[in-house]
């Protein structure tokens, strides 16, 4: 499986120049405008991983991968682990620059903010990716991409409608009970979805014909 991770990392390395430039631009914008840069995290990690799926698809790597020892299992497992690795690395980078930005602008370090928002963004990012993968394995990256945009767009519309319709003060009080355990619950929830998503993807991929 390590070999498959190395292959995914080598692909990311192939795109490194573009990624670094993009990252620098965002960080520079952060420094200039005191903008919160945690949006980089989901944006970049999703972009990086989806591009590996696209390259795989373009050269029919999956069919070739099946001819390698334990190809089916290792392919899927490697994608999940690479995702985790990429999200982790980007998180660390974002945390570091976010701290720097707040220090440069305020001369203090807002640890509370950094330590709270960044992990939540990280978990949400993982959650998003984890929900996409079974769809990608089932329908292929090209179809899944359209589907993913559709779903995101749909959630946004439904969400904005709900905000208008629902009295949030009641719900907020219900959530206050969760507040203390919120982060922990969120973490467990994400991990659980990760495992479930992996199992589903693996099942789809094991049966797939190329």
């Amino acid at each position: 499986m390590i070999g498959f991770i190395k292959k995914d990392l080598a692909m990311i390395k192939g795109n490194m120049k573009v990624l670094v430039i993009l990252f620098i631009v965002y960080v520079a914008m952060g420094f200039a405008s005191e903008m919160n840069i945690s949006f980089i995290l989901p944006f970049m990690s999703v972009m990086i991983m989806l591009s590996t799926f696209s390259y795989d698809d373009f050269n029919k790597w999956d069919a070739y991968a099946v001819t390698l020892p334990n190809g089916r299992k290792n392919s899927v497992r490697a994608k999940y682990l690479t995702t985790f690795l990429i999200v982790l690395v980007v998180t660390i980078l974002v945390m570091f620059f976010e701290t720097m930005i707040s220090y440069v602008h305020n001369n203090t370090i807002d640890f509370e903010n950094v330590l709270l928002t960044v992990p939540i963004t990280m978990l949400s990012t993982l959650l998003v990716e984890v929900m996409m993968y079974p769809a990608i394995y089932k329908w292929g990256i090209e179809k899944a991409r359209i589907g993913i945009f559709g779903v995101v767009f749909g959630i946004e519309i439904v969400g904005s409608l709900l905000i208008k319709l629902i009295d949030f003060s009641k719900i907020a009080s219900a959530f206050s009970i969760l507040e203390n355990y919120g982060l922990l619950l969120f973490m467990i929830g994400t991990l659980l979805s990760l495992v479930i998503s992996y199992k589903i993807s693996l099942k789809i991929y094991q049966r797939k014909e190329f």
Binding site: G3, F4, A10, M11, Y55, N59, Y64, L68
Partner: peptide, 21 residues
């Protein structure tokens, strides 16, 4: 027409294959 993604180099293939076979 089925092979490693074309963004990779022969060196990358070697790098990955060491841990595949």
């Amino acid at each position: 027409d089925m092979f490693f993604p074309e963004i990779l180099t022969p060196n990358d293939i070697n790098f990955a294959m060491k841990n595949i076979y």
